[in-house]
Design a protein around this nucleic acid. Structure first.
Lengths: 220, 220
DNA sequence: GGCAACCAACCGATCGGTCGGTATGGATGA
DNA sequence: TCATCCATACCGACCGATCGGTTGGTTGCC
């Protein structure tokens, strides 16, 4: 189960979230992820929850306020999760591995919320919420770039452009939800670990110097 | 300009495509990419084209038949494009570079169609069209895996799992449309070239043997 | 005359959202 | 003890707006 309550921050404070509210979040989250925000009607959500549409509006003022906490929670929690597991005293290579693997761990736990948030990013009409979400996303991406820069400074990594390298890493991670099969033989963190190995050491077999020359000629 | 006519296969046959049809494709394509298929109404498209909604239905029988050729064309053409530029007699490393760079070249030319197709993949109600599109997508991904396998066989590449490595490469490419800025200093093929360098040689600075030992200890 | 291009007006369906009302169960006060 | 009260949880029926799509035309050019 997803433990969406944790992602939404509903379990920490004094409020006791109704089980119905959690159910609505879970149902809506999966439907948004699978068919998109516009592709899901309030009637759809109500039907799968086994309640009437009017009851849905007893718990939520409008459709946006179902998606918003999910999208915000996913974006904010992913940063808090990787930041909690980061340790700036470790070698940058290990920090990078943790960043990648912990992102996958998080994504596996909150797959639907992640997808729903990333596909419906553009539709929130409330500017403040949109801005806050972008800020958390920026923190997440900045942490990765900080790790890469630390690796350059320590001599562990050899990177021309930190921004480009960051895009490379983020692309591999962010594309995972599109094809990842939870029922497959490899769990997300294992795949992420292999990604990290490939990213660090490259696809190329260690070439003798003359092979490099030959390659350069062939490109021309 | 996009030259959507080429992507749609409208210029090769005897038919003379009306300029209006091209205009509708261009407008719809960009709107679908920016706001999603469900987020765009036929009224929106008609308004930006400067025609009435009824006239839209003079050229297209329904909404799906505007998106379908765009999505199909993007998926089919990307494969044909990279396959045309592939040369199985070249070293696998060069073939891989061409695959990545030519994908970026194509994506830069048909950015909106690419995005519209990849986001609206799931909504086509016509099973035959969906199946055909998946088939072209599979050919595209299989070509990449073939190149990787050729590199393993020739000793150029050192890859444990071709599927995983393929996902890695595809992720970096497919995520590009999400952040790529056409007005930025680097064009898509240049970025793709840098991606290829990083993918081939890795982020890690060539480590002395003892540094590798140290790293392994730190992971534990 | 015939046909491509175009449009205002309209259709049934569905959208997000509202309204008035009901069943229930626990606290309150005489 | 029992009537009252109130908040919570729920629902059927409805609203105006908008959706994809249709109809019955009117132009203007060959």
């Amino acid at each position: 189960m997803d433990d969406l309550a944790g992602l939404l921050g509903l379990d920490g404070n004094g409020e006791v979230p109704s089980g119905r509210i959690i159910q609505i979040y879970e149902v809506a989250c999966r439907q948004f992820a699978q068919r998109g925000f516009d592709g899901v009607s309030m009637r759809d959500i109500a039907a799968e929850c086994g309640i009437s549409k009017a009851t849905l509006y007893h718990y939520f003022p409008d459709k946006d306020s179902i998606l918003r906490p999910l999208a915000m929670g996913a974006t904010k929690s992913i940063y808090l999760h990787v930041a909690r597991h980061d340790d700036a005293t470790l070698p940058a290579v290990d920090r990078l591995r943790r960043f990648i693997v912990e992102t996958a761990t998080f994504f596996e736990a909150f797959r639907w919320a992640w997808i729903a948030g990333s596909t419906a990013f553009w539709s929130d009409p409330e500017a403040r919420a949109r801005k806050e979400r972008v800020a958390w996303r920026d923190r997440y991406e900045q942490l990765l770039r900080d790790i890469l820069q630390a690796g350059i400074d320590s001599g562990e990594l050899k990177i021309g452009d930190v921004k480009i390298a960051g895009r490379l890493v983020l692309g591999t991670i962010n594309w995972m939800p599109r094809w990842y099969n939870p029922a497959g033989p490899l769990k997300a963190p294992e795949i992420a670990g292999q990604f990290c190995n490939l990213l660090l050491d490259g696809l190329r077999a260690a070439p003798p110097a003359k092979a490099v020359r030959q390659r350069k000629k062939a490109v021309e």
